[in-house]
């Protein structure tokens, strides 16, 4: 499965890059979402993949020492997912106002407006 996930991560990054290079702001936002998905997955994979062994201290004293799942990347990703949502929401609201005021969602119009 690792190799499949490696391919999925590469694919998500490629999609993110392609969308980030577009002039449409909506696509830019979608690109950022792809990027955060891919990054979360990357961190997740780097912590090692183990099936059916979530980290619970179920014997009441400490975690099962034979359980190889690393809890730290999971904690990091949990934070990252929520922060990513915050960024996406703010970015969307910003884009919405921009579109409402200027009537365009083309980044190059934004750039040319600067020079006027």
């Amino acid at each position: 499965m690792e190799i499949l996930l490696a391919i999925v991560i590469g694919l998500l990054y490629a999609a993110g890059v392609y969308l980030l290079l577009r002039r449409s702001i909506v696509k830019l936002i979608l690109g950022i979402m792809f990027f955060s998905h891919a990054t979360n997955l990357l961190i997740f994979v780097s912590g090692g993949l183990h099936k059916g062994q979530p980290q619970f201290a179920n014997d009441g004293i400490n975690a099962v020492s034979s359980n190889p799942t690393d809890p730290l990347p999971q904690a990091l990703i949990l934070t990252a997912i929520v922060i990513g949502f915050g960024i996406t929401a703010f970015f969307l609201a910003l884009m919405y106002r921009f579109y409402q005021v200027t009537g365009t969602e083309d980044l190059d119009d934004l750039k040319e407006g600067e020079n006027k």
């Binding site: 490696a6 392609y18 891919a38 994979v45």
Partner: peptide
Amino acid sequence: RDAVLSIAAGLTITLLVMLVL
């Protein structure tokens, strides 16, 4: 041009992940 660049970036990452694992 962008598609070529994106695919190159994706392949780099895939390679990186496979090595890291």
